[in-house]
Design a protein around this nucleic acid. Sequence first.
DNA 1: TTTTATTGATTGATCAGTCAATAAAAAGCT
DNA 2: AGCTTTTTATTGACTGATCAATCAATAAAA
Lengths: 195, 195
Amino acid sequence: MPKLGMPPLRRKELIDAAILTIGERGTLDVTMTDIAGRAGVSSALAHHYFGAKDELLQATMRQLLADLTVEMQQALGRAASPRERISAIVNVNFSVGQFRPEVVAAWLAFYVEAQRSPPLRRLLRIYVRRLRSNLMSGLTPLVSRNQADIMSEGIAALIDGFYIRRALKDGLPNPRGAAAVIEHYVKACLSSQPA
Amino acid sequence: MPKLGMPPLRRKELIDAAILTIGERGTLDVTMTDIAGRAGVSSALAHHYFGAKDELLQATMRQLLADLTVEMQQALGRAASPRERISAIVNVNFSVGQFRPEVVAAWLAFYVEAQRSPPLRRLLRIYVRRLRSNLMSGLTPLVSRNQADIMSEGIAALIDGFYIRRALKDGLPNPRGAAAVIEHYVKACLSSQPA
DNA sequence: TTTTATTGATTGATCAGTCAATAAAAAGCT
DNA sequence: AGCTTTTTATTGACTGATCAATCAATAAAA
């Protein structure tokens, strides 16, 4: 039943299916048949559109990054002060869109695979740098350079830490709770300012 | 060359080889042949001693937990006050023994696999609970119950966050830096006490 | 009739797990 | 002390399952 103009649609369907499958299973160790099956097509078609499995996985991670970036830009656009920028960054990472268990589990799976795959590592670096730079732009007007360095590392580590715990589901953080702990951290640092 | 009393020696050698192999590769997705080869024996022998691969992996995670526990007990024994207990807990997690890249990568691999494997999940729960309880025992004498809850979640998330970043090696935290960021967090919270 | 989308069938590689065979020590016997 | 027998440790060779990747064949638009 070949309708025309399928390629872009299929690509998207396959990437979405990949996110769901990876997120559900919590690992990149899923078969092309799993992903293609969820998208309602044969594994041969997935190979036809993406060539090797790696390329589908990379496209999938790029999609996750792109989704986060879009939401982040919107939130930052609404922030009126440096202090609000910080909260905006934190909140996006725990928003309904980003902090869903499947999405978090997929992120974690890519994080882990990035240890071995240079292309995935490159993508991850982009994310890490962007997060850091966004945090610094909110922090430097408020505290010393040194203090800002410490705090941006701390906030980034807290986000990753809550992600890992979320992926494990175990009696662990709901979005609000996690964001609240980070806000508490920021407040404590800002009120005991000296550097 | 069968010497007597090999079983306990071989078991240990295989577990050590598993930690190294898993840590080096950053995943549990290693073959029995890889592990056995590093221990200098055939894969058949690894199966002979552990039965299924799962059991070797579980034994390996138990070993990691046991190593951490021993070091933690020693450090807590030397701590003379609640405040020192907190620092001791943090420091152990970034000690030379625990914060080696291979060990950290192995921990992360088990963390991730625990999403799927109930036995590994059970082991992980033990660790999480013990960490939390140790932290609370240091925090409750110093701050309100509510504040202690928040801080122990925060410290635990920070530790996990720095572990994940360490596994990725990427221009990221040396042991001292990571521990320092957490100490800074604790200080900031304690000095802006009110709950 | 050509182009586009799609798949079933197949191939080759990799691995966990099994098992019968082997070799070296230890134990038993004289 | 020598010898046979038993026990213990170890492996090579094999099996069956799984999967990524390929490709020739098919079917529905254009």
